[in-house]
Each structure stands twice: as structure tokens, then as C-alpha cells.
Design a protein around this nucleic acid. Structure first.
Lengths: 152, 152
DNA sequence: GTGGCTGCAAATCATTTGCATATAC
DNA sequence: GTATATGCAAATGATTTGCAGCCAC
């Protein structure tokens, strides 16, 4: 795998294409599950053992300020990162902790003015139980109910 | 000031009406600027010097789980707290750091199901420059422009 | 060359935790 | 009296910072 594409992308963003930046960008392109800084670090370190976590934070910050990625504060515990695409809501499952992309428009758009405030970016975070975990809970409850009927 | 009202409210929420809980609830009712845990602590401590910050965190967590307040993760630095009202977006000014309430409906409502995911709560965070800071920047730019014209 | 980046370790700071004491009922 | 909450101090964990050495240009 050559990294020409990522290098060119970084140059266009006005960022020096260091090996670390290429590696982080590549990781984010291949892992669209909204990883935390630590997950990026763990993932990239495999193929790049000398990588420092401080560098991961530096790179993520540079990419964020260059507009290549978005930072999600959907969870209080740790920021998550997402390759920049058209703005869309995110869903955090309180059971499994996964973050899903939601394909809906925001009510407010970047560039709008609301109540006199200039809008530069928008994030919508939705919290609840995801389809996957709902199905599991349903199955468990059905099993319990069957058990209860046997007991009765 | 009696605290009968807050005590009754706490009881209804299923929470023991301790002095600390009454004080925190009262503070939140009077300070609708979305304070951080530390701001609540500093504010309440004035009239209640023995208060511990751990207790503030405990109380905020109890109120949150009882559904009396909402926790905002609009900023990565610290959570902010808001007396529970009908859901509405919040705006964080990157210049002054203030958080404003925005009177608009969410695209997704609590209780909805989106992509099979059960929605329990929704937060919309809007980032940019607030009306107040925009006005200030405009004034400064105008002054600079006038200065530039003098220089020319 | 040299300015910007990386890597390391230490510092920071919000939040959590353990536990002895105090309080609400 | 007992279960629950508080207060203190120490622990945790994400993020930041300082700084010496390294790399891209």
C-alpha cells in the first residue's frame, strides 16, 4: 500500500504529510465506527510501534482544525472522531456503547443564523437502545416469559 | 426563604430531601445559564461552606437519573447542567464560551424509533459565534477599517 | 539549515471511588 | 436503629504540556 493518496490529501489541507498523519488518516478512512483517540492509537500502533499517544492527539487536532474530520462529544468519557462527511446525527446505544450514523438532515444547517448567532457547525446526538440490543432484550424477555408460564 | 417547595419536589422524585440536594436544586432553578458542576459547587458553597464537590457530583447524578435535570456534553471540557424543560437545541459560542437556549424543535423526538433504534433522549449542539460577540467583532473590524483609511 | 513535528514523561483537570461519619426517616 | 447521603482525600483517566531530538522541505 502506497500512501500517495493520503499524502496528497494532507498537502491539500495544508498539513505536512508525516508518516504518523498518513497512518492516522488511513486508519480513520478504514474504521468508520467513530473511534476514540485511544482506539486510533491502539489501532495504528500495531503497524507503527514507535507512535506516541500525544502525537495521535496532535494529529487528530490538526485534522480537525483543517476540517478533515469531526470530533463527537456524544459521550462524556472520551471524544470520538469521524471522517468529515455531510453533517448527520449520531446515535449512542446505552447498552452496547456503539455509535451509529443516522441518515437524517439537521434542523439547523451550517452557515445559518439562529437568534442572531452565526452557525459554524451542528451536532445532533441521540441516546437510547439500538436495534441490535433491542432485539436481544426482546428475545431475553420472551424467554423469561415462557419460563414464567412454565413456572405457573 | 423556606425550602418547602424543593423538598416536596425532591420527595416526588423519590429522593431524600437533604439540605445539599435542596441547595443544588435551588441553585439550578435560579441560574439558568447551564452551569458546570464546578460552577454549581462554587455557587452553592458560598451559602453552605461545608459542601463537598463529591456531593455536588452525587446530587447532579441523582437529579439526572430522576429526570429533573439534563446533562449537556456540548463542550469536551466539562459537563453542563440544565433544569429539565422541553427538549431544545443549545448554542456554544466559541468566543465567549456562553451556552444559549435555542427555541427550535428537534428533528427527532424522544420516543421515536429511527433506523430501528429506540430514542430515549436527544441533544442538538450548535457551535459558532453568538450575536453578542458578532456585534463586538463587527465594531472592532469597522474601527480597524476606519484606522486603515486614515493610514492610507 | 530550520521550522515544524514527534515522543516521552510529567502535569492538569474533570470525574469517580473508598470509607468513616453524619443524617433522614 | 438503619439505610442512605455526605465529606474528605486519594485514585482514575482523558487530555495537555514542556522540551529535547528528529524529519520534511
Amino acid at each position: 500500500m502506497d500512501h500517495q493518496e493520503e499524502s496528497a490529501r494532507l498537502r491539500k489541507l495544508g498539513l505536512m504529510p508525516t508518516i504518523q498523519r498518513v497512518a492516522v488518516l488511513e486508519y480513520l478512512e478504514k474504521n468508520l465506527v467513530h473511534p476514540t483517540a485511544d482506539e486510533v492509537y491502539q489501532g495504528v500502533k500495531d503497524s507503527f510501534p514507535s507512535l506516541s499517544k500525544a502525537t495521535v492527539y496532535n494529529v487528530l487536532d490538526a485534522l480537525k482544525r483543517a476540517g478533515a474530520i469531526r470530533e463527537l462529544t456524544i459521550s462524556r468519557q472520551a471524544a470520538r472522531y469521524d471522517i468529515m462527511t455531510s453533517p448527520h446525527p449520531h446515535f449512542l446505544c446505552r447498552v452496547c456503547g456503539r455509535v451509529y450514523d443516522i441518515d437524517l438532515p439537521h434542523a439547523v444547517q451550517e452557515g445559518d443564523v439562529v437568534d442572531g448567532h452565526q452557525v459554524e457547525s451542528v451536532q445532533t446526538y441521540i441516546y437510547g437502545v439500538c436495534a441490535h440490543c433491542r432485539a436481544k432484550e426482546l428475545k431475553k424477555n420472551t424467554a423469561l416469559q415462557v419460563q414464567g408460564e412454565k413456572d405457573a
